[in-house]
């Protein structure tokens, strides 16, 4: 990925909060990142730090009711989609930006055939005769390595294995040839060998389509395999972002360091984030200063007073910490 690559998605200072009776949950609170054309950006962080909510904010598919994006810009291909109307968003979804969800078991509608569900997506791209659409559906399934696609399109989700369903979900998600694909832990629910297959498939599709992927995961092994750059998220904010190699070899933020240290060995596909001592702060009651302070070994008074600004470490490498360069 060259530095000069064009930006396709630019998220700036995004704040998405839950307004509940007992308080405001600041699940996403000041997230900024850019995604360049054709790259894979990893988004990692502990459970509950706001990764999925960041993704759903970008899709503008927040859970109905209490959640609202209250601040920020989401610039997709030059336009701020937070300013788009719901019907304009429907035009954008599926074609410019799409998403693969975590759980293949529940991502497909159980009462419609695979073919039906693919057709709905394909028809939107270019209305055509049923026969033509069926042909396209078969081709779409073949593209995600589904054997005997002609038979499969008449089947229901429960007749397929988890890995197969996830590939169908992938086929549906990319059927509109989106420029950006968000993959929210797409392999967590699959077993290891199937995971590998799926990741290879995603990578291939990404190369074929030239789409950019925002890849959300818990798993540093997957980051190493899939991503060009990685953003590390903590308590609603990105604390470090840089090329994968640099982050692995020279993590700068104490949180990133702790994360990487907690991964036993960076070989193979394992490498789940194991616990770091302590708890992240409550998203209802975020501290004024650095959010990692309560767990940081390098904490000092100024860390508690104000949130550290973003420090440029390398050309393409930033971190939010007061003590960059001195630890």
């Amino acid at each position: 990925m060259s530095d000069s690559a064009e930006t396709i998605l630019d998220v700036r200072d995004l704040h998405t909060h839950f307004f509940l009776r007992r308080g405001v949950v600041k699940a996403v609170d000041g997230v900024s990142f850019t995604l360049r054309k054709g790259e894979v950006l990893g988004l990692v962080g502990e459970s509950g730090c706001g990764k999925s909510l960041t993704a759903l904010s970008v899709m503008r598919l927040l859970p109905k009711g209490a959640a609202r994006t209250v601040q920020g810009e989401i610039v997709l291909d030059g336009e701020n989609i937070l300013k788009r109307t719901p019907s304009q968003m429907r035009e954008i979804r599926g074609r410019k930006i799409s998403m693969v969800l975590q759980d293949p078991q529940t991502s497909l509608n159980p009462v419609f055939t695979i073919g039906d569900q693919l057709r709905e997506a394909l028809v939107r791209r270019a209305p055509a005769k049923l026969k033509e659409i069926i042909k396209q559906a078969v081709a779409a399934l073949r593209r995600v390595d589904i054997a005997a696609p002609e038979q499969r399109i008449g089947q229901y989700p429960h007749q397929m294995s988890g890995g197969m369903k996830q590939r169908v979900v992938g086929a549906i998600a990319i059927s509109g040839e989106p420029e950006v694909l968000i993959a929210d832990e797409p392999t967590t629910a699959l077993d290891v060998t199937i995971q590998l297959q799926y990741l290879k498939l995603l990578k291939r599709l990404q190369r074929e389509n030239g789409m950019a992927i925002l890849f959300i995961t818990h798993d540093f092994g997957v980051v190493a395999r899939m991503c060009d750059r990685v953003a590390v998220m903590y308590a609603g904010r990105i604390v470090e972002c840089g090329p994968v190699k640099q982050i692995f070899e020279a993590p700068s933020h104490p949180y990133t360091r702790a994360l990487i240290a907690s991964v036993p060995k960076m070989t193979g596909t394992r490498g789940r984030l194991t616990a770091i001592d302590g708890q992240p702060p409550s998203l209802m009651n975020l501290p004024a200063g650095c959010r990692f302070a309560s767990r940081c070994a390098h904490v000092e008074p100024r860390c508690l007073e104000a949130y550290p600004g973003t420090t440029q470490i390398g050309a393409d490498h930033t971190a939010d910490c007061w003590k960059i360069g001195s630890i």
Binding site: E91, L101, D103, T106, S107, P110, V111, F112, R124, G176
Partner: peptide, 27 residues
């Protein structure tokens, strides 16, 4: 309406009418 497949239907860009009266109601 909370289920993932409804989310996927929206991700596809389907209209709210289709999402509610087809995907949700049938289930």
């Amino acid at each position: 309406m909370e289920s993932e497949f409804v989310k996927l239907a929206r991700i596809k860009g389907l209209s709210e009418t289709t999402v509610i009266w087809k995907h949700c109601l049938r289930n």
